[in-house]
Each structure stands twice: as C-alpha cells, then as structure tokens.
Simulated assay, not measured.
Amino acid sequence: MDVQITFDCADPAGLAEFWAEALGYRVQGPPPGFESWEQALEAWGVPPERRNDASAAIDPEGAGPRLFFQRVPEPKRAKNRVHLDVRAAPGLEGEARMAALEDAAARLVARGATRLERHEPAPPMGFGHIVMTDPEGNESCLD
C-alpha cells in the first residue's frame, strides 16, 4: 500500500518546490507525451487561473511518500494536528547534531521557511530539535 500526504495550501507549485528541496525530493514531472506541465494543462484546456490548483513532490528513489499540494480558498487557521519531522541529522549526537540542524534550518529559511524555536538536548531522550514552519505556516520539526 502506498501513502500520499496531502497539504491544503494557497500556492501548490511553491510548496511543492519548497518541500522537494527540504526533503531531497523532486517536483513530479508532467505525464508522458508532454515536455512540461504548462504544455499538458494547455492541451487539456485548463484556464491559466487554474493551472496552480495542484502540484506534487516525489522521492526520486521511490521509497518515500508522494506529497500532494492542493489549492484551497481558506487560509491556515490553527496549529497542525499532524506535521512532518525532517530527519536532518541522522546518526549525529550532541553539538554535531545541533550544528547539522542549524545548517538545515538556515537552508530552509533561505527558501521561505520560518524558524520558531530550538529545543536543546535534554535527558532522558537527549535529542534536540528545531521547530519550523514552511512558507505557508505549516509546522514541521528538524530532528
């Protein structure tokens, strides 16, 4: 069984690009027979104002879930009940781990994310993390 994670958002293409960069994914290409999404949407008669209604990001290795972004009219109003944890420092501990998380946070901020707070490593778990939001305010953690 495959899993797809769906985001309601205002800018599907923008968020697909952001999360593709954040996760090492790529924006899903157009269907066979088309060189670009613009070409496909034009051929299908989709009006220009509807051409950013949806987008997707996929794992180039085919192992991770597809991320689907769909435009909705209403803005985000409250904290997400589910969020993505981006494993930005696997196998690292202590200061090396936190330095790797800081590097990842800076890279995502440069792409439009917002850094909310840093949680220092503390017993008994011993792992710190950084709370972030994507360009539309969806929460995630760098851990």
Rank of each mutant, 00 (worst) to 15 (best):
A122Q: 15
C141Y: 10
D8W: 03
G33A: 02
A40D: 00
A122V: 15
P123Y: 09
E93Y: 12
M1K: 04
M125Y: 15
K76G: 04
Y25I: 01
A22V: 11
A56D: 03
E42Q: 13
P60N: 01
A122P: 06
R111Y: 00
L108P: 12
P124I: 10
H129F: 12
T133F: 06
V27Y: 00
A40C: 03
S55Y: 07
Q39D: 12
T6P: 00
A113L: 05
Q4H: 04
F7I: 04
D134N: 07
A54Q: 15
C9S: 05
M125K: 11
P124R: 04
Q28E: 12
D85E: 13
L84Q: 07
I58A: 12
L116Q: 09
L67G: 07
T133P: 04
V27L: 00
E17W: 05
A113K: 01
D143N: 09
V3N: 06
A113F: 02
W19A: 04
P47R: 00
A113Q: 02
I58F: 06
F34W: 11
P123R: 13
A88R: 01
P60C: 00
G29N: 02
P121S: 10
W37N: 09
M98P: 10
F7P: 01
R118A: 11
A110P: 10
V109T: 07
D11C: 12
A88I: 08
E139N: 04
L101G: 05
A96P: 01
S140H: 14
D143C: 12
T114F: 03
H83P: 05
E95R: 09
G64V: 00
S55Q: 11
A99W: 13
P135S: 09
P65V: 02
T114L: 08
P48M: 08
M1T: 12
R26E: 15
R97S: 11
T133K: 05
M98I: 11
G112F: 08
R97N: 06
T114Y: 02
K79N: 12
A22R: 08
E136P: 10
P12E: 04
Q28G: 08
W44M: 10
D143G: 14
N52F: 02
F68M: 12
C9R: 01
P65N: 10
A106P: 01
W37V: 05
H129R: 11
I58V: 15
G137D: 05
A16C: 00
E61Q: 14
G45I: 14
A40I: 00
P31C: 00
A57F: 01
G29Q: 05
E139I: 04
P135Q: 06
I58P: 08
H119N: 11
A40H: 07
E35S: 14
A10Y: 06
Q4I: 09
E120A: 14
L41R: 06
E136C: 09
D11W: 10
D134H: 08
A106R: 13
V3T: 15
D59P: 08
C141W: 05
Q28M: 10
P32H: 04
G24H: 02
L116H: 13
W37S: 02
E21F: 14
T133D: 07
Q28V: 03
I5L: 09
F34N: 01
A113I: 07
M125N: 11
